[in-house]
Design a protein around this nucleic acid. Structure first.
Lengths: 334, 334
DNA sequence: CTGAAAGCGCTTACAG
DNA sequence: CTGAAAGCGCTTACAG
């Protein structure tokens, strides 16, 4: 900036004004400055300007999710990026991997980098440690999972209701022995999905058979193993609800290796690319990560723009996508 | 930092020494400083320290790819994150979307944020504009596509050879009429994949039938349409090579809707989650994005650590994953 | 409308 | 081993 000022023959302050589009600069001086800046390939140092600025804004936000390589997280990141870029804000990402320690590490790192705000799907179950930073003016928007012990904006899927509707759907096709396969019970959404399942069962006056419930399944092979055992048992389920992507894939493998794909009904949570290409195509409860991300980004930028209205909770509807695997009737009904 | 110094009753400089783990501090003073820092929940301002530091390092790198929501890009981002986090370096991401303008915009934005280095899969075909920043000490590592008019490190898949091997594989099953379906011809990897196809064909003494070559396919519906027309033609191909994920999906849909999945051979480029669950399971040329990312990140950090050896080009092998769809023999051979 | 001085939070380069 | 002064690139708060 000093060099630009020297080349343009003006003061530092004038360059600063031109760079920041302050309108009060004489057009001739301004164009001299712009010419000099272009000649020197000058790029203003955003960190330096943030340091002195009253608002201290770095034009950077953090998007911290479970795992940026999974399609749900990746889509959220990407959709936030799209909103951010329109405001010339840059997005730094991080993956918590369900590790509360890593949540602490990453949020602290972001705080050292003085990000302007956070969008996060937390791994921990206590977010009171963020209250100080929040009070200091950094907005937090939670996605996919609500904040615990912290008042903050939050954007969720209606997982519970989505699973209830999916379970009713299976019940309607005559299924009574429905297995529920869930992810880590420590995860909020995992609990919600199971709750949605129980809601529908009790609503139908059915009790949940504990031998048909398997939770804390994280990987496809684990799910494949469990589902294999269920299918091979004396009294197998006639339908399966898979509470998560990888679990769904494991379940489908177990079913296929037994050639039961036309006999056992399956509904999964979260859409899969290519779900329509399987035979039968896979019925799922699809979330809407683009919309979750857009709502979250919009909320965050509103807060950054000074919106001090009460904390909001936005619920984005999930959708039952009917494709075939969930519409296989129970044997007794055939 | 000032507050920490005041609370600990030491000078600013002593706090700075403790924060930066300079060993020359009296243990008693150091622990007083640490206590004060903890009480005040002090987080050092990395941008401010970068401003004055001789190396000017911000502990931030940029990872700019085609589209962070696609599995290939997302996996690269995630794997770079994993290497970066071990060095307490934070990763800011961006998506070019095959738009050279956006490449300029995003690299300039990153430059204003004074990132320490770049890992990027470029959209443009001329990177000379980065030479200045590179000379100023910011390392660039290109992934998936080589730099043009710029000397920079680069990590590539052996796409061309991978496609040649896949095509030979189809030829071995008796196919002569093999359709090639490619992505935008402006994309480097797209050209390479087509070149690999032609290599194998000419090696086998076959000419490429131009009516079986369709390039510039970007979306699944476009591919589905084109493949549909091919399959419905008087002299349809007996095998298809799909040069990209979405194209593969479109091709599979066209084949399935005509119930030809057991008759027309298909090989795709890039692995798909669930490719093993289709019937037949899909044979693909799989890249290794984790390894590409690890190599790129390692190279970048070597450069940041002062490695000034000549520019390197690393080639990561791709792998033909045989699953069934690519092993359907040509009709004349049956 | 333009600019000289001070200061953001930190590290550097010295002095003691 | 510890600290006072200067300065990184910028904006603020003034003065003219």
């Amino acid at each position: 900036m000093k060099d630009v000022a020297a080349l343009a023959g003006v003061s530092l302050k004038t360059v600063s004004r031109v760079v920041n589009n302050e309108s009060t600069v004489n057009e001739e001086l301004a164009s001299r400055v712009r010419l000099a800046a272009a000649q020197l390939h000058y790029q203003p140092n955003i960190s330096a300007s943030a340091l002195r600025r009253l608002d201290g804004r770095s034009s950077t936000i953090a998007v911290l999710l479970e795992d940026l390589s999974n399609p749900f997280s990746a889509t959220i990141y990407r959709s936030v990026e799209e909103v951010a870029i329109r405001r010339s804000v840059v997005v730094v990402g991080g993956s918590f991997e369900e590790d509360p320690e890593r949540e602490l590490t990453l949020t602290a790192a972001m705080s050292r980098h003085r990000v302007d705000g956070f969008i996060m799907a937390p791994a921990s179950r206590d977010h009171s440690y963020l209250a100080r930073e929040q009070r200091a003016g950094t907005p937090f928007v939670f996605v996919d999972r609500p904040p615990v012990n912290l008042e903050a904006d939050c954007v969720l899927s209606d997982s519970r209701d989505g699973v209830t509707r999916a379970t009713r759907h299976l019940l309607r096709y005559g299924h009574r022995r429905i297995a529920f396969l869930g992810d880590l019970t420590t995860i909020y959404t995992s609990q919600e999905r199971f709750a949605g399942f129980r809601d529908a069962m009790s609503e139908a006056g059915l009790s949940v058979d504990p031998t048909l419930v398997h939770l804390d399944l994280r990987t496809a092979p684990a799910a494949e193993h469990v589902v294999g055992r269920l299918l091979d048992s004396a009294n197998p389920p006639t339908a399966l609800f898979a509470g998560q992507n990888l679990v769904l894939m494991g379940a489908l493998r177990a079913i296929r290796s037994r050639h039961l794909q036309q006999r056992v009904a399956v509904v999964g949570f979260d859409d899969l690319i290519m779900a329509d290409l399987l035979e039968p195509a896979v019925t799922v409860v699809a979330q809407n990560p683009e919309r979750i991300a857009r709502e979250a980004a919009t909320l965050l930028f509103c807060r950054l723009d000074g919106d001090t209205s009460p904390v909001r909770e936005v619920v984005v509807p999930s959708e039952l996508v009917i494709r075939g695997s969930g519409e296989i009737p129970a044997p007794s009904v055939v």
